[in-house]
């Protein structure tokens, strides 16, 4: 039996780097202290905020919701709304929705469940089928990521949030970092910061309070607080995901060389200021169709919708009309139409 380094009770966690052991009580204290410190260090929240917590109902997001709800007791001017994006993945999402609803209802926390079906026009399952039928070249996770972000922004604006908190943990961040190095996407690397805010374009500030938290710690926090049951629920589309392989590789590296993931996080933090001003990561436009901030004149979500036949005819007419006198827009639309076998989309 391993004992806690602080009180001799049975340990539930040994930090692989410091080798300190923590019992349940001391682990929870350690975890919350780390998250509070991260939030302070990066100036994530002010005294008066309406925080939208992007909650999937999984371990990370319920841990985030739990700790923010706990902290809000000491910050009376914080309002919290949990937002769950229901992509419509049969046999998967229903189960995590239940976790959130149960959690929020017991504690009286306002929550919104926003479906792809109502906001995009189709469930993710149907989008993937339609994309395949039309010969579109995208992986399930591409649609999901783009549309999820789009719907989350929309809902956050509808509820008048001042900030969106997401539960991306250190593992997520370093995996994305490595994936973007592999694909030579430095503008995406420069966006991997703990806080994202933009003065213009109605972009709502985004924060990642778990930026320095390993996935295992946030999972353990969820389990020790009874937020989720130790059962394995996996998205059926995950096998199509590059992240799947990168994650495995990084965890094997971490086991051999404890601290490797922290090292990558530090490497990311060192490169971001160097990239500043050299790669263009800021959204310069507001999408002509939906008005969301975008790096192109029409945002990715609207381009996907167009290719899937989910954009209304008058909106397509409007952008085609604009494209007549706008070469950049015309070539963007051409690119997106030549990316599919269905040129009839346009």
């Amino acid at each position: 039996m391993t004992n806690c380094s602080f009180c001799e009770k049975p340990a539930v966690y040994v930090n692989p780097i410091s080798r300190l052991a923590y019992c349940k009580r001391h682990f929870i204290e350690y975890f919350e202290r780390k998250v509070r410190r991260t939030m302070r260090k990066y100036n994530m929240l002010s005294e008066d905020e309406h925080i939208v917590v992007a909650t999937s109902g999984g371990k990370d997001s319920l841990s985030l919701l739990h700790i923010l709800v706990k902290l809000s007791r000491k910050n009376p001017k914080w309002r919290i709304t949990a937002v769950l994006i229901d992509e419509g993945i049969k046999g998967y999402r229903e189960r995590t929705v239940e976790n959130l609803v149960k959690y929020a209802e017991i504690r009286g926390i306002p929550y919104v469940v926003a479906g792809f079906k109502e906001y995009i026009g189709m469930t993710l399952d149907d989008i993937i089928e339609e994309g395949r039928r039309r010969g579109l070249p995208y992986m399930p996770c591409s649609y999901c990521g783009v549309f999820r972000r789009h719907v989350l922004n929309q809902v956050a604006r509808e509820v008048r949030a001042t900030v969106i908190a997401t539960a991306h943990n250190m593992d997520d961040i370093v995996q994305t970092y490595l994936m973007n190095i592999i694909s030579n996407s430095w503008e995406r690397v420069s966006a991997l910061t703990p806080v994202r805010s933009e003065e213009s374009g109605g972009f709502i500030k985004r924060i990642k309070p778990f930026y320095e938290v390993p996935e295992k710690e946030s999972a353990l926090y969820a389990i020790l607080n009874n937020l989720v049951k130790p059962e394995f629920i996996q998205c059926p589309y995950v096998k199509y995901n590059v992240r799947f392989t990168v994650r495995r590789m990084l965890n094997e590296l971490e086991d051999k060389y404890p601290g490797a993931k922290y090292g990558l996080l530090r490497s990311l933090q060192a490169i971001v200021p160097v990239l500043k001003g050299r790669v263009d990561s800021r959204s310069r436009y507001n999408c002509l169709v939906c008005d969301e901030p975008s790096s192109q004149k029409v945002c990715r979500a609207c381009l996907y919708k167009m290719q899937l036949g989910l954009l209304e005819a008058e909106k397509i007419g409007f952008i085609l009309d604009k494209a007549k006198s706008d070469k950049a827009l015309a070539s963007l639309l051409k690119y997106y139409s030549s990316n599919s076998n269905s040129e009839k989309v346009l």
């Binding site: 049975p10 539930v12 040994v14 692989p16 593992d171 389990i223 130790p230 965890n251 086991d255």
Partner: peptide
């Protein structure tokens, strides 16, 4: 891998 797994014995979390 150690970093991806939590182990339980008699319903309690144990360490590696």
């Amino acid at each position: 891998t150690l970093s991806e797994h939590i182990v339980f014995k008699n319903g309690e979390v144990i360490t590696e």
